[in-house]
Design a protein around this nucleic acid. Sequence first.
RNA 1: GUCCCCAUCGUCUAGCUAGGUCCAGGACGCCAGGUUUUCAUCCUGGUAACAGGGGUUCAAAUCCCCUUGGGGAUACCA
Length: 522
Amino acid sequence: MSDSKPVRVRFAPSPTGPLHIGGARTALYNWLFAQTQGGTFLLRVDDTDHARSSEESLNNILDGMRWLVMDWDEGPDKGCDFGPYFQMQRMGGYKPRLEKLVAEGRAYPCFCTPEQVQEGRERQEKEGGRPMYDRRCRSLEAAEAKSRVEEGEAHTIRFAMPEGKIVIDDLIKGSVEVDLAEIDDWVMMRADGTPLYNLCSTLDDLDMEITHIIRGEEHFVNGVKQVLLFQALGHEPPRFAHLPLILGKNGKKLSKRMAQTNLPDYRDQGYPPKAIVNFFTLLGWGFDAEREIFTMEEAIERFSLDKVQKSGSILDDEKMSWMCGVYIRNESRAELLGHVTPFLVAEGLCTEEEVAQHRAWFENLVACYQERVRTYGELPPKVVHYLRGFEDYEPKAWKNLNKKEGTAELLEAYKESLAALALPPSRPDRLDEADTTVLLPTDKVEEVPAEGSTPFLYPKHIENAAHALAKSREIGFGQLVHPIRAALTGSAMGPSLFDVVYLLGREECERRLDRAIAALSK
RNA sequence: GUCCCCAUCGUCUAGCUAGGUCCAGGACGCCAGGUUUUCAUCCUGGUAACAGGGGUUCAAAUCCCCUUGGGGAUACCA
C-alpha cells in the first residue's frame, strides 16, 4: 500500500495567471495534509501550456504562497533530489517512456487533424452518442503507422483506453466506479512534439514519488486517465483526493464577476493573511462544533481529508470580512502599525521614516482605529485628517455644527476651557513621551492616574473638563460633544472624541475650532 | 445531451461512518435590546434548516430507492 511510504504531496499550478483563490485553497489543503502526516510538501510548476505560461504568473504564485506563509519543502527555488521542478525542464524523461508505450500498443500515433477530430465529435453527438474521438487511427496497422511517423507526417500520440470499468477510491469522494468507455483516447503528445498535462503530470508524480494527489474536483476524470497510465507503466498509482470547488454567491463556479478571485487583490487591499488562511481552511472543513477561529497549528492537530466536505461551498465575503476584523483586533499595536504602514505610505500620507520617528504617536493613532477596520487598506482614509487635515465637513458633521444657535460661541468656550488644560503639543512638535506614557484608546486603559499625578494629561481628564463645561452651561453632554467632533474631524464618526483631542494636540485643536467658528459666522 | 459527484438555517458548518441523548448545535448576516459622546467594538436575546416522495425500523437528519435541485467533466488547457 502506498500508505506505508513517506507522504509526499505537491501543489502543481500552471503559471498562466495570478494565483487564484481556489488554487490557494488547494495548496493550503495539500500543505495541511503534509503537516498532519509529517510529509513533504512540494511545489512543481506545470508549465506545459507554453502558449499561456509566463514568468510573471510564476512569481505571482510564489509570492502568494509566501504571503500565506505556506512554505514548501521542495520547489523551483530549492535544490532537492527530485528536481527540476518545472515540467518543461523534465522533457527528457517523457519521450522514451512514451515510445515504449507506443511499442507496447498502449498508446498510438494519430494522424487526424484537429478539424477531423472535431468533425468526428460533432457527428457522434448528432447521433446521440458522446462526443469522442472515433479512434480511427487506433486500428492502423503498426507498420503503416510506423512508416508514416518516420516519413515525418504530423501526428499526436493518444492513449489507448482499455475496456471495462475502474473503481477510483477517492479519499474525499469515496469509491467511484467509472465506465472507461466514457473516456476519450486522450492525447498525450501534441503534433508539435510537446507533451500534455496528463502525461507529464503522471510521469512527474511517479518520478517525484508523490503519494497523494490533492486537487480540485475538476480534475477527477484526469485522475482516471492517470491511474490507467500508472498501471500501463506498471506502477501503483498514488491516492487521490478531489476537493469540491469554491462557488460564488449564486452557487455557480466562482468567477471574477461575483467576487475577487485573485489572491494578490486580497493582499493589495490589506486582508490579514492569517485570516485568509483560517477562512479558507474553514471553507470545506469544520474545526469542531463550536469554533471557527483557530491557528494553523491547531488545524494541523485535527485536520483530516475524510472530514472535508463533499459539496462545493459558497464564498461568503461578509464572513470573511468579519474574520479579518477579528484578526486585526487581536493584533498588538506594534503589529498593527507594522501592517498598516505600507498602506499609509502607499497613500502618500507619510513616509516610513516619519513612522519610525514618531512610532509612539502612530501606534496610538492606529490603535484608535483597530476596532473600526477589517482590512489594513481601510485604515488610511480614516486617519487622513490627522496627517493632512480635511477639506470639507461631511454633510452630517456640518449638520451637527449647525443644529443649534450659539454653536460658535460654544466652540469658543470649549477652546478656552482647553487652554487651561495641559494638552500635549501637536505635530511636528509632538513629544514622544506624550504617547509612550499615555496609551490610547482610552476604553482599553485600565487605570487612569489622578489628574496632576503624571506629567501628561489623560484623555479621561480632558473628558472630565468637558463634562464640567457642559454642566456649567446647563447643556447635555451630547450637545457639546457632537459639534466639537464635527469641528475637529469634519466627520460625525470616529474614536472617542477625547482621544482625538489628545492625538491632535493643542495647536491643531485650536486651529480647527477657529476654523469651525469662522465657518459658522459666514 | 452523456457520465460522475453532491444535497442540514440566506451563507459557512456540527451531527450522519457504529439510527434513539436533535421538535437539530455553533458562526456570519439580519432583527431587537444593553453599554456608549458618534461610529465601531463588546454583551444579551431573537430570526432561520434536515429539498420532496417512498421505503427499512419500535425508532431516521442519520440506512436504501426514486424525483427534484445544484455542481463538475466531456480540448492537440491545466
